[in-house]
Computed example of a mutant assay.
Amino acid sequence: MGSVDLSGRVALVTGATSGIGAATAALLAERGAHVLVAGRDASRGEKVVASLRAGGGTADFLAADLRDAESARQLAQQATDLGGGRVDILVNNAGVFPFGPTEQASPSDVDAVYDLNVKAPFYLVARLAPAMADRGHGAIVNVSTMVAEYGVAGMALYGSSKAALNLLTKAWAAEFGPRGVRVNSVEPGPTRTEGTAAMGDGLDALAAQAPAGRPAEAQEIAEAIAYLAGDGASFVQGAVLPVDGGRTAV
Rank of each mutant, 00 (worst) to 15 (best):
V10T: 12
F97A: 15
D5Y: 06
D41T: 10
E46V: 14
G32F: 02
T102C: 09
T58M: 09
S108E: 15
R40P: 10
G85I: 09
G21M: 09
S7Y: 07
G8Q: 00
G19D: 03
T17D: 07
G15A: 04
A23Q: 06
A11R: 06
L12E: 06
A42L: 08
R53C: 01
L28E: 04
D5N: 14
E30V: 01
V13G: 12
A26N: 01
A23Y: 01
L75I: 02
L12C: 07
V35G: 07
L90K: 08
A64Q: 02
P107S: 02
A69N: 05
D65E: 11
N92W: 08
G39F: 04
A50G: 15
R86D: 06
G100V: 04
L75A: 03
L90I: 10
D81Q: 15
A79D: 10
Q74H: 05
D88I: 12
A25K: 05
A94W: 10
Q74C: 05
A16E: 12
Q77D: 15
G55W: 05
L6Y: 11
V37P: 04
L66M: 03
F97Q: 12
L52T: 00
V10F: 00
L36G: 08
Q74Y: 00
A11Q: 13
V91H: 03
A63W: 01
G83I: 13
D88W: 12
G95Y: 10
A29T: 03
S71H: 02
R31L: 08
G8R: 06
V35Y: 12
L27C: 08
V48L: 13
L62N: 07
A69R: 11
R73C: 00
T17P: 03
L52W: 01
L82S: 14
G56K: 04
G56D: 01
R86K: 14
G21D: 09
A72V: 09
I89L: 15
R86V: 12
A94F: 09
D60S: 15
L28A: 06
S108A: 15
V10Y: 01
N92A: 08
G56Y: 01
G32I: 11
A63R: 15
P98W: 07
Q77M: 10
S43D: 15
F97E: 15
S51T: 14
S7M: 03
I20L: 07
A69H: 00
D81K: 13
A59Q: 09
G21K: 10
D68L: 07
D65T: 14
A69L: 12
A79W: 10
A22H: 02
V10S: 00
R31K: 11
F97C: 13
S7N: 09
N92G: 10
G57N: 07
A79Y: 06
A29E: 01
K47R: 12
D81V: 14
K47E: 14
A63T: 14
K47D: 14
G32P: 05
L82Y: 05
D65I: 01
A59Y: 08
S43E: 15
R9Y: 02
A105K: 13
A63L: 09
L52A: 07
R73I: 02
L90E: 07
G45D: 03
A42W: 05
L52R: 00
L28P: 06
G15H: 08
T58K: 14
L27W: 04
V37Q: 10
G83Q: 09
G21L: 08
R86I: 03
L27M: 14
R9M: 15
V48Y: 08
P101A: 15
G39K: 03
S106P: 00
